[in-house]
Amino acid sequence: MTELIQNVIDGLGRGSIYSLLALGIAVIFGVMHLLNFAHGELITVSGYAAYWAFSSGWSWYLVAPMVVVVSVLTSLLIERIAFSRVRGASDFTLVLTSFGIHFFVSAVFVMYVGARVKTFSEPGWVFDTISIGSINVEIFDLVVIGVTAIALLATVAILQKTMFGLALRASAADFDAARLMGINSDRVIRGAFALSGALAGIAAIFWLMRAGSTAPSSGIDPMLKGVLAALIGGLGSMRGAVIGGLSLGLAEVLLRSQLPGTAAALTDGVVFGLIALLFIFRPQGLVSVAHAERV
């Protein structure tokens, strides 16, 4: 029982990061039907920015907000340079564009910083644990869960209470109709990328704290987890993205603790297999987004 609770907290901590990533992907999918394989590059860029900052002697308290700013700016830049030119193109074009960006960004880092892994030190408390009764919990997990909860509440507030949030939700429901109602699509899309970048920036802080390093290919893992979590939840559904992220985190941790010795190394493989099965039997994901086509 104790172990189960520890695993659940660990899984929720992991899942929180995935939720932040997935939510960013879902927001963009909502406004431009783009499955963004370049989302992980925000983590790569943030990682190099953090590395540069640590080399210049910054502390984590300064690096953390800087990472969020860098992530937002990178997100906006990618939108400006590439995605704004393929708006309204076929799904095929959109996916491949983001796939190309994913490779381009990592290749640029190989070219100018080098393929080697750059390390920096995690903050001291990352691996500390506290005991509540007989349960040992990593402080890190609690911080992640807490900050994620705040970030999600802030996102909900933005979506529900602001004009921009209304425009964004309207655009996600029916982009063309929203435009006809006078919503400035440029601004909504840029706003979506900024929001997505901010969420990825927060995720990046925790991701980097855990990893303590960055490399040109660092973006693959977070991109995958984020994309999969968004898909599990049902693309385009923001609630679904959060549920998907948490489910993915829990599934990973619980499987790893339950699978016998050698098979534990295959946890990721098993998780991917389960996801494939989910999509075979429920192609719309856990939370389905209604959409109809007039004939």
Binding site: A107, V108, M111
Partner: peptide, 12 residues
């Protein structure tokens, strides 16, 4: 690393 940049750019 130029070949990878080339492939990425070609795709985009």
């Amino acid at each position: 690393g130029l070949p990878r940049v080339f492939l990425g750019l070609a795709m985009i």
